[in-house]
Design a protein around this nucleic acid. Structure first.
Lengths: 362, 362
DNA sequence: GTGGGCGGTGACAACGTCGTCATGGGATAC
DNA sequence: GTATCCCATGACGACGTTGTCACCGCCCAC
């Protein structure tokens, strides 16, 4: 706070930074339809029709109204519009954090899809996944000007808040197994994880070690379950999973332990960031990737192509997930129904340079 | 689109994925104050007072109203409230992309600060920085239910849209030198870049090479300018800057060229992602970091601690920037004034393992 | 020439909330 | 016991927009 510099650095700047200065107030009462109507010499009803592109306004009148709108800088008041129409044309997105790439990519896709449909996105971040935080967010949510809600978090955490989602609001949830109670859209976590494991087994590895995501994430759970199932299905030993929390740092810690396991030749990290940490740990301990140890991630974040070595990973189609979320929520809104069930979006593997057959042909 | 799998994967799932099913409509007309008032046997005015925590309601009555509200699941209608009060308690954020870490971190900080102040965030993404896109966004923006706007983009691009920001809306801009026309909050780009260069010079490097951000980014421009100025100030040769676009991939391409410059011992990448690409390129060409070449980044993204080697970088205080943006915009809103000038938030260096003195003592 | 129909426009009400003012009843002080 | 004051509550209207319906004038058909 006290370290803030105002207007420093004037010596070198092309445009010298200046002290913030106040200007005289400039905000006058907002211009309403009535004002436009008066200027154009018509009724406000006609202004409304022009504003909404309704037919039944003669071209001459229309031009006059448009001119008046422009002259006064008229902007329709969306509050009044929403009050009358009962819809805000806004979708609320509730999520814990923008720190994980998955959330961000999904949010971006949601925002773009929503924009295409003429909907805006209202962000509802929950700082920390504590009960109080979530409850607070949902109390605010209740008053929020949204027609629908997309929840990007494990639904258990919602339940923990002893707060049910506002009634009369359509909801789509991600990262959840609550398909029996909500409409859920998700990446095919199981399929992706299975592909990852099979890829490594196909390369000739005896088994695959696993760095998990956080326990309370359904996605993480699913990936771990599928990893175990794929190994068991192939009749391979199942090494103890190493706990992670999506961060590169936790991946590094897990990687330190893996580096000490001489029989470990293949690792499946539950996301790319943790894979990054694993790569560093292995590198620091002189375990060459992929010659000695293969590493595969999950997500296909843009940076993963620049890891050392470039990471083989499971691509998530975030754009499709986002699109499906928006579609789902708007469909419920329009048909006035509530849907349940799970929609899965497939993944695919992106093979780069971090996976190879195990050393000495094995 | 046609690759989407609905309800697949039922074999292994703890909760089998199911086909989305429709339920009978469940949405009834929303309950209003009048409904609550009727049930509680009071006037809607009293409900209003309870709802807003206004004094002058006897405890007994209050409890009755609260009970009625709970029973009916009453949620205040924010449209009506906004219409009456003239404010939405919402801040619009317009940005191009959520692909760069800086934007995301800033957005997150803005969202958190805004939430603290009881404001929601409405996201206004602009898919591509073409004139049409921006103009479209701003047209929508004009009708948007926001009290204020924070622009996270170079203001030149706004101007290109031949569209002025809606009048009567307070605005704060980031990544811009338009402090003479708007209120601008920014990281002290110049200071940070200067620190980065000086750090490398202090280590004994003859000069510092530079991978730039995109041309149309003011932040990138500033970092490049400060890099050049710091070198000139020290009387060092100024190598040709290598163009980048914030992505790791572009950093890799620049790194390939740097790897071929034998006299290059120190690199300043304009962000951490590009530094990641540089690290890979150097690694692939057998140029050891930091023993042969030092690399410094800018941003201090969480992953940078897990790069190989962990990256020395300039920390940006995104939280502070976000807070200042929100503060600025709300201050303008409350005082009904328009501010101009630039506020700079200082950076600091985080020293990790990617920088060291140049080889052979030089 | 007159009646019917239709297209363009305006008047009015209502959406849900909250500020303002009015009202009524109870408590306090004499 | 009565006058005064205050506090709790209610009635009413307005915020800006839009749906509904009424209206007016014109054109066309008979």
């Amino acid at each position: 706070m006290d370290k803030i510099v105002d207007g420093a650095d004037a010596d070198r700047s092309p445009t010298p930074a200046t002290e913030p200065t106040s200007r005289p107030a400039r905000r006058q009462r907002r211009v309403s339809m009535a004002d436009v109507a008066r200027l154009a010499g018509v009724s406000s009803q006609t202004v409304s029709r022009v504003s909404n592109g309704h037919p039944g306004v003669v071209e001459d009148t229309r031009q006059q109204v448009l001119a008046a709108m422009k002259q006064l800088g008229y902007r329709p008041n969306s509050a009044a519009r929403a009050l009358k129409s009962g819809e805000f044309r806004t979708i609320g997105v509730i999520l814990f954090t923008l720190s994980t790439t998955g959330n961000v990519r999904t949010l971006e896709a949601i925002a773009n899809s929503a924009a295409e449909q003429g909907y805006a996105i209202t962000l509802l971040p929950v700082a920390a996944p504590t009960q109080d935080q979530v409850r607070g967010a949902f109390t605010r949510l209740g008053e929020l000007a949204v027609d629908a809600i997309i929840v990007i978090m494990e639904v258990h955490l919602l339940d923990a808040a002893t707060f049910t989602l506002p009634p009369n609001v359509s909801v789509v949830v991600m990262d959840s197994d609550a398909g029996d109670r909500y409409s859920v859209v998700d990446t095919d976590q199981a399929g992706g994880a299975r592909d990852a494991v099979r890829h490594l087994l196909d390369l000739g590895h005896e088994t695959v070690w696993h760095v998990t995501g956080p326990q309370d994430s359904f996605s993480a759970q699913r990936r771990t379950d599928a990893w175990r199932a794929a190994l068991e299905e192939a009749g391979r030993p199942v090494p103890p999973p190493l706990p992670g929390d999506w961060t590169a740092e936790s991946g590094y810690r897990a990687g330190l332990r893996l580096a000490r396991e001489p029989e470990c030749t293949a690792v499946f990290a539950a996301n790319d960031q943790m894979a990054l940490g694993v790569l560093r740990a292995l590198h620091e301990h002189g375990r060459a990737v992929p010659d000695e140890v293969s590493v595969i991630g999950f997500d296909d974040i843009p940076d993963s192509n620049s890891f050392i070595p470039p990471l083989t990973t499971i691509h998530q189609d975030f754009a499709e997930v986002g699109r499906r979320c928006v579609e789902g929520v708007l469909r419920q809104l329009r048909t006035d129904t509530m849907e349940r069930g799970t929609t899965l979006v497939p993944t695919w593997m992106v093979r780069r340079e971090s996976t190879a057959p195990p050393p000495s042909g094995r």
